[in-house]
């Protein structure tokens, strides 16, 4: 990593910042300062190294079809990671993202197939489910001052139960749904490679959320609330309103994820997505967003989701047992959090 680092852009125009650290500027602390300033840099380096290594290990890895497959495989968890990033930036955590997405997808599918409601309306109902779930989480966090971990641990179980009660445990096949619902799973050719509509939608969502977080007052308030809630309150930021809007926005993103999930799996299954709750947190953490809030970026989470996808794909192409993929992901998480802790020491 150190060799990669020197190739990165130097922090020009911050001569006085450099002066601030002049007395204890070692190569290692310089690297730390740069990583601290650009939180998405370390996951980007990891992804690059992983792609190069897996490419060298197996010729098939770098083929367009394989790379396209990886992006499709990460599209759902990548979308959930957007919602998860928003909440983790506020120093919260959402254990219920996967459950909300599955509940939303079951409502969409049941309404469209069981009740014969038109596709757009069914999707709208899915959005309402996502917003409702976000509102419930946000309400419990802001009004009852409960820790987000406990709130979403509770709602996780509630949403899973509601999903199974509502669906009767049965899967709805994609072939019986209106075309709009499975449209997210369709692909179109782009040069030599086929791109999935869902991947494009995920990327557009990343762009939109990155824009909002980086360029608007709301985005800045999200960071400020996660950074130091009391300071934000004293600075005149309506902390509870910001938190509530974050949970609502996350709910809307999860509804979008539900649509992508239906397209990707060509079905709506109440038993899918059990791993997605934790997988989304994995992506965010590997992406360099701090679990303590206020630090990180949504692009990092995309990189985090891609890193997990690349490791799983690369290891399976290398012929390793699926258990080694899980092992690798576990090591990645601990590594990512260790790096985060190390980078945070920069404030001293």
């Amino acid at each position: 990593m150190a060799q990669q680092q020197t190739a990165g852009p130097p922090a020009t125009g911050h001569a006085d910042l450099a002066g601030e650290f002049l007395d204890r500027q070692t190569p290692l602390s310089r690297i730390r300062n740069i990583l601290h300033r650009y939180p998405a840099l370390s996951p980007a380096i990891v992804l690059l190294v992983a792609v190069v290594v897996f490419g060298l290990l197996n010729d098939r890895f770098l083929r367009f079809e394989n790379l396209s497959l990886i992006t499709q495989q990460v599209s759902v968890v990548g979308t959930l990671a957007i919602a998860q990033t928003l909440i983790i930036l506020t120093a919260g955590i959402d254990l219920s993202v996967g459950a909300v997405m599955i509940l939303s997808s079951m409502v969409v599918a049941q309404l469209a197939v069981g009740s014969g409601i038109p596709g757009p309306l069914a999707l709208l109902a899915g959005l309402v489910v996502g917003l409702g779930a976000g509102a419930l989480n946000g309400f419990l966090v802001t009004r009852f001052k409960l820790p987000p971990f406990i709130v979403t641990l509770g709602t996780l179980n509630i949403f899973i139960a509601v999903t199974l009660l509502y669906s009767g445990g049965s899967t709805v096949r994609g072939s019986s749904m209106p075309g709009l619902l499975t449209w997210t799973g369709s692909t179109f050719p782009l040069g030599p490679v086929r791109i999935s509509t869902g991947v494009i939608m995920m990327l557009l969502l990343y762009g939109a959320v990155a824009f909002i977080l980086g360029k608007t007052a709301w985005g800045r308030h999200v960071y400020a609330v996660g950074d130091d809630k009391e300071a934000a309150r004293l600075a005149g930021i309506p902390v509870n309103r910001v938190l509530m809007s974050v949970y609502l926005a996350a709910g809307a993103v999860l509804a979008m994820g539900a649509w992508l999930q239906i397209g990707r799996t060509n079905a709506a299954s109440p038993n899918a997505g059990v791993d997605l709750n934790l997988d989304s947190i994995t992506a965010v953490v590997i992406g360099g967003t701090s679990l303590f809030g206020g630090r990180g970026s949504v692009w990092g989470s995309l990189l985090g989701a891609l890193i997990v996808g690349v490791f799983r794909n690369g290891l399976s192409l290398a012929g390793l047992d699926v258990l080694y993929q899980t092992l690798a992901v576990g090591v990645l998480i601990i590594l990512a959090v260790s790096i985060d802790q190390w980078i945070r020491k920069v404030k001293s």
Partner: peptide
């Protein structure tokens, strides 16, 4: 306790809450 947001830059802190 200063009520500044450590991760935000100086300008963002000056205008925090009234961007």
């Amino acid at each position: 306790n200063l009520a500044v947001s450590p991760a935000l830059d100086v300008a963002s802190n000056l205008f925090l809450g009234r961007e």
